[in-house]
Design a protein around this nucleic acid. Sequence first.
RNA 1: GCGGGUGUAGUCUAGUGGUUAGGACGGGGGCUUCCCAAGCCUCUGACCCGGGUUCGAAUCCCGGCACCCGCACCA
Length: 564
Amino acid sequence: MQSMNDIKLKILEVTKRRGFYWKSYEIYGGLGGFYDYGPLGASLKDNILQLWKDYFVTKEGFLLLDSPNIGPELLYIASGHAEKFTDYMVKCKKCGHVFRADELLKGHVDNPEKLDAEGLWKNIKEKGIKCPDCGGELTYPEKFHLMFSTRVGMDKNAFLRPETAQGIFINFPIFYRLNREKLPLGVAQIGKGFRNEISPRQGLLRLREFNMAEIEVFIDPQEKFLLGDVRNISLPLLTREGKEYRITVEQAVKMGILSEPMAYFMGKIIIFLEKIGIDIKKVRFRQHSREELAHYSRDTWDCEVLLSYGWVEIIGIADRGDYDLKRHMEYSGKDLRAFRRFKSPKKRKIKRLRARMEILGPLFKNDARKIAEILENMEYEGGNIEILLEDRKIKIPKNAYEVVEIEESVGGERFIPQVIEPSFGIDRILYAILEHSYYERKDSGYKVLKLKPRVAPIKAGIFPLVSKEPLTTKALEILKIIRDSGVSCYYDDSGSIGRRYARADEIGVPFCVTVDYTTEKDNTVTIRERDSTLQKRVRISELPEILELLSDEKINFESLDENV
RNA sequence: GCGGGUGUAGUCUAGUGGUUAGGACGGGGGCUUCCCAAGCCUCUGACCCGGGUUCGAAUCCCGGCACCCGCACCA
């Protein structure tokens, strides 16, 4: 039995040696929190995203967006990140420990998070706040910003996005229209996010530039959200009260632990994780405590996997309510609401105004038309009328309009949709797949990555049994055929056949094709399956199709007929 | 950011002031080889960066960078 720490080191060793990923900028001494994906890693990541898109975009009928990494300052002021992502830190002069200044003032001052550096400093001195660890003097509060800031053009302040989500929110009206004004509406975005972590650690698990795949699902809270085919999926839940459950999606909703959309996406996530090769026995959903909740979130559940580092969050599902759309409405002045149609139009009697142009005209000249328009669109509630036209308050004399009572039919109402956000950390998922795929053969101790065929970066190795003619030429011919058919594969004739199988196992190649002396007689080759090491003999003419089906997991190796 | 530890070929590592820094695995070439890292020959390749101490530094000291563990942080 190997320790968890061993696995961590072995994964690290294999991934670096075989070119999955490595620390960026090593020739310049490295830079913390940045990684390069090499040939295998880039391809693995690609395959994960492909499956993600297939499962969460295509199959759900959601819409894709690809918006910029850099956004204007105002966007992130509106989103709350500019404020919430900045912390003032103080350091103890004696023991060197660092604290958030506002945390230290909690209980001493009301709303300490609203103070600036000067205000915090004043209060620290007045209340005599000392280092909670050793009682030492504290330094002047220093700003620490978790967003990378930059400049656009000469002088426009901008930020690198800390999440791809904001690009989706601000485009809601366009997507709403593209979806023919129907909810629920899901918009998905795959892209990079940037966070200037104080201290990135643990390889791919905490990066400063990372890959994320996010979905914002806009829903009408008055409409029932259907659980569909995930209702019977079993969910491992850990509530903020510390209660553990293993219940179905449907039960979780019935018991009031989860809302329908939250439960639905958890079910989808379980299926997805299993598809890409995560061991779902090592998965749980943990509800955030109140203190943990992000500024925009009403409820959040982290999907965590058990790795050698402990439980690690790989996906977050947040109920963002109407926070984001509301904020962007406030800051942009644009209407980001959806329209809810009533089942039958509501009829009501209201008082409306009819403008008398013969009075308005001479009185307001060029503005008369606009004023008339405003008047005729407003509901009359009695009293004197004063309207706002281009920042001017204008009093309208009583003789300039008539009040008429009409019966109006109202077809529906505008409202701000609620948003559920499943947000996937792709780098963490990739690492989790590697850890959950890694094993060593019982007899030999050789390393194997049991990557699912669909995520495996390379689907097949093509080998001559021994490195001799005519086997080598035949194997190279087959290589070309397989490559032309679109299946990623490679040729290897160095060392013994066993060594080549072992090399392939280590990077998770699911199938190896071997050309042997029977091949020249009847045009057949063997296909070896990685985990069982079993072989089956198939015709070369059928090989491309078989490999394609195996790689796409349309058939599995056990059910493959030997057809010679 | 703090404290502790660490930094030698692609990988794992030996070397604690003194010649051309040693090994294993890997990788390339060759021989051998009829199915799971066999063997032989051969080649390849490293002291994290900068400063200091010293006649001389991979080794000692200082600074930086990075990694690991713990603390803090993780919206």
